[in-house]
Amino acid sequence: MVRIRQWGWGLGIATVTAVTAFSVASWQANATPSAPPSTPAAAGGQARVSDPSPVPEAATGTGNDPLTTGEVDKARAIALTPQLAAEAQDVTGKAGPEYLAAELDVDGSRQAELYYYDYKTEKLFKQVVDLKTGKLAKSYSATGMQPPASPQEAKAALELLVADPAGAELKEAYRKATGKTLTGTDGIEPIAHIYTAKPADKGASQCGKSRCVQLIAKTADGHFINVTGVVVDLSGRTVAHLK
């Protein structure tokens, strides 16, 4: 059953809240009302939904569509200004900021918000790229903000932990779980939780200003090792015990 619908975007009420009203859309039925469904319920009373075949990803999105791969690539090229590329540092100490995430701006306009971390200044950058004009629309930075870690940061944290005496707990747990000796970081997939110290926490009070993670290690055969009580400070490249 194919039904044609007409879609209309419009500003809703123009009241004191007009600034937020542009997210309001009206989805209006065409003249034909929905006919009662013939029998979407197949034998046995099991209701069904449509099952469209996957289509190749579009180059660009519309409205509330997720950012496409093409849009993210385009936005990253614009967001990484020559200055940021030259002056910022990633988790490994290389030039250029650590790329973290891309989000669709929820204001209703189609903009990509790209987040980067600069290990040199301990600042989180938010680069807002207007996908229509292809321009960097806005740029913000602040210290003390720590969104989730990139895969590269999780890997760097694992390397720091394994190289540190505090990694003994992980190595022992790995030996118990797999019967093998852990050498280097092969055979482990790290999962990183950002750690931010709260006033009453003990042991790693710099975390929050610094970028810190706690690690969960997943072994090749699917065991999880929870490295409790240890925090890896990616900014200071140190490992600290909580207590």
């Binding site: 059953m1 879609w7 989805w27 469904p37 979407p40 409205g63 509330n64 997720p66």
Partner: peptide, 18 residues
């Protein structure tokens, strides 16, 4: 439809229950 939608077809779920 030749009008704008809040999202494209891939990001839309529209289903009629029995």
């Amino acid at each position: 439809p030749a009008a704008a939608t809040p999202c494209g077809a891939q990001a839309m779920v529209k289903e009629t229950l029995p």
